[in-house]
Amino acid sequence: MLDQLNENLITEGKEPISFDSDCREGICGMCGAVVNGLPHGGEKGTTLCQVHMRSFADGSTITIEPWRSAAFPVIRDLVIDRGAFDKIIQSGGYVSVSTGGAQDANALPINADAAESAMDAAACIGCGACVAACPNGSAMLFTAAKVSHLAQLPQGRVEAKRRALAMVDRMDEQGFGHCSNHRECEVFCPKEISGAPHRALEPGIPARAARPRLVLEHPQIRKITDLISRPIPLLSSERDISFVGRGPAHGLRVNPVSGSFSSYYSNGFRDGLLVRGR
């Protein structure tokens, strides 16, 4: 879509919009923008490059903004500098082995479930949506994903503690905010990385059992989207449920009687209908 728009702009003699992308299939993590207030467009498990125009109503206006975070300076239009992520990995996101001399791969059996669970975390593509979604601009999900990938494998366990401390320190140094358990990151993560390990990283906050989910439908996005993964207490009258961190308003107003909601993100107000709670 942006390609086509740019073709038109260039032909009209206008400056095209700069945006990053490479693989166009949701794996390289290069693309990313906030679409209608939702990182990567808000479709479950989807990167921006996989959002199809067919998911928007004809004629609707689509707002696109770059990731907003102090740690990701904007370079131009939708292009941002995510170098801070590389720096976090450099601080310890590896097993300290050099090339050569590794033992036979099968000499170290690894529990299949542990390997699968490590793989779940390793699937992170480093896109930065978690940071963009977080009211605190925290990189906790990204950092925790790497920590948990390696800590679940015997090869990585040796350095697990040192690694976790170094990476969290580096995260702070790079200007990311602290995690205060809003869990917006999980909702918008295109690889559906689980935040369970990130709660493990915050020893002060006990891990909670899975919470009921609200599924909301929005006229402009049309697909059912897991917009919110926090419990909505039984309500008797219309009220605000705010998940404001520091920073701009970021919340949801629900009318439990009619089921209607309006959400407000940093960039405006939109309305929708609450379809069901599960």
Binding site: V95, V97, A102, A112, M119, L153, Q155, G156
Partner: peptide
């Protein structure tokens, strides 16, 4: 061997082997 040592999470059988 090298990739396993780095922590690449290859698929495994229930035996724990690759």
């Amino acid at each position: 061997d090298q990739c396993v040592a780095q922590g690449v999470p290859f698929a495994r059988e229930y035996s724990g082997l690759l």
